[in-house]
């Protein structure tokens, strides 16, 4: 029977905290960038200008239909060769994960926008609003309310996806865990601790999302 011993983990606390900081920082970066990209792609896909629609469609489908791990590796190893621009592992990770997340955000945002009653933009237009004003003042505020739960869900997935950057030797929580595991020869305790750390961060978030969904279903 395996003898569990978690006490030694304490000596790696700074390593873990460091990794946790990188993981959280990465999540904030890829969620915010992904939302910007996703909003742009969603609006492009709803555009009256056909080439813009095709471009958005191509982007969304390419990134939704290839594994995110493949994208990470491709951005780090293939893109520099093709473009001739050297990029760091961190840049490649942020680029790949933001674009990957953006493709899912785009579909959520687009779905939220098209779910709004066509009478709303029509009323806005009848009052003399430009399409841009109608989007900003009338449609997006209503659509956003419906989008928040799925966007939060997708962001939780994005949080977990940051663990993949460890394959590019970005020192996130999992990568630091690997170091601690090799150093201590106790991978069972280390990876269990890493799993618990992810869970403790994410579980409260899922509760917030669920409450948000409940609140949404009782209003309007």
């Amino acid at each position: 029977m395996y003898q569990w011993d978690f006490n030694f983990l304490w000596s790696y606390r700074w390593l873990f905290l460091n990794g946790l900081g990188v993981t959280v920082g990465f999540t904030v970066a890829i969620v915010s960038l992904g939302l910007v990209v996703g909003l742009a792609a969603a609006l492009a896909k709803l555009s009256a200008f056909a080439p813009l629609r095709w471009l958005a469609h191509a982007y969304i489908e390419v990134f939704r239909c290839t594994p995110v791990l493949v994208q990470l590796v491709w951005f780090y190893y293939a893109l520099p060769i093709l473009s001739g621009i050297e990029i760091s592992a961190i840049t490649a990770s942020i680029l790949a994960l933001s674009l990957y997340g953006g493709s899912f955000y785009a579909e959520i945002i687009r779905g939220g926008i098209v779910s709004i009653d066509p009478g709303q933009p029509e009323a806005a237009a009848a009052l003399g609003m430009t399409p841009f004003q109608a989007m900003r003042r009338i449609i997006l505020p209503q659509a956003l309310k419906r989008m928040v739960p799925p966007l939060m869900n997708q962001s939780i997935i994005q949080f977990k996806n940051t663990s993949l950057v460890s394959v590019l030797a970005v020192p996130d929580l999992l990568y630091q865990g690997q170091i601690a595991a090799h150093d201590s020869y106790r991978p069972l305790e280390v990876y269990s601790a890493v799993a618990v750390a992810y869970f403790l961060l994410l579980y409260p978030l899922t509760i917030i999302v669920r409450q948000g969904e409940k609140k949404l279903s009782t209003s309007d």
Partner: peptide, 21 residues
């Protein structure tokens, strides 16, 4: 031009189309 034009005519719809937010 369309927006400016429509600003000068008021319209009332069968289903109200009030802004619910």
């Amino acid at each position: 031009a369309l927006a400016n034009f429509r600003a000068g005519t008021g319209m009332v719809f069968q289903h109200f189309n009030l802004f619910p937010h």
